[in-house]
């Protein structure tokens, strides 16, 4: 079984559990109801769909990879097609994904293969954590191991943590123009990577309002990529992880 994003879920090699057409029909109403709840920012109803699904025999792996993650992917598609998705919808999609991962992974019959590792925090001087939180929820659902460094993170801390975690990607969130462009943000992280000959080992992803208003800013500050929003960041970061892993 694989999610739409190609994430290995740990049960794909067991033919007896392959998703057949009948199974898909059984799951369909749950998939639809869950996604509707997310779009409606109805947290209790989304959780109820998950609970009902488990009670009716849906595997924890299926809940995550056939219901929760596809809903996130559907939001990504909607954003790419310029259909209006609000910050509240990103938040709820990510929040529930995070909760489901925490609760259901211990119940998986086999530990899922992790895609990679990311250290993430807000830039030095920046105390806005919402975007980071949305990204973390999505990454967890995409089987990325996340090390949350918190708010107002010094550039040296990003690099030290990435080395310690053996991460592939350093994620830096900034909501203010001076923290996005400042000397102690991404620019300094890039400089340290350069000085320590670590540029091949790590990729830097950035996000936050200033990057939305200046699409070229991420290059100016030395990042490898940026994401339009918290949900899209999941896709961008997993792409960077694979890039590092291919080297």
């Amino acid at each position: 079984m694989q999610s739409g994003s190609g994430i290995k879920t740990g049960v794909e090699d067991r033919p007896d559990e392959k998703m057949d057409a009948a199974r898909q029909v059984f799951l369909s109403p749950f998939i639809r109801r869950y996604h509707e709840a997310i779009l409606d920012t109805d947290h209790p109803f989304a959780r109820q769909v998950v609970t009902e699904g488990l009670e009716q025999g849906i595997l924890p792996e299926e809940i995550l990879f056939k219901i929760v993650l596809p809903s996130i992917e559907q939001i990504m598609v909607s954003v790419s097609e310029a259909r209006d998705i609000s910050l509240a919808q990103y938040f709820i999609a990510s929040q529930i994904a995070s909760e489901v991962v925490e609760e259901l992974i211990p119940r998986f019959r086999q530990s899922p293969d992790m895609v990679g590792r990311v250290v993430i925090g807000t830039a030095s001087g920046d105390f806005h954590g919402l975007g980071k939180r949305i990204v973390i929820g999505c990454l967890k659902a995409m089987m990325v191991e996340v090390f949350d460094l918190g708010l107002n993170v010094a550039p040296e801390q990003f690099v030290e943590a990435a080395l310690r975690a053996n991460a592939q990607v350093i994620g830096i969130s900034a909501m203010m123009i001076h923290t996005a462009r400042g000397e102690n943000g991404c620019r300094k992280v890039r400089q340290i990577l350069k000085e320590q000959c670590l540029e091949e080992r790590f990729r830097i992803a950035v996000g936050g309002a200033p990057y939305r208003f200046n699409p070229d800013l991420y290059r100016q500050v030395g990042a490898d990529a940026c994401a339009e929003n918290g949900i899209a960041a999941g896709k961008v970061i997993t792409g960077l992880i694979r890039e590092v892993q291919r080297r």
């Binding site: 947290h43 929040q95 919402l130």
Partner: peptide, 12 residues
């Protein structure tokens, strides 16, 4: 209270 906590209180 910070945007994270407010968004959480508002929606959940």
């Amino acid at each position: 209270m910070g945007m994270e906590k407010w968004m959480s209180l508002l929606l959940t």
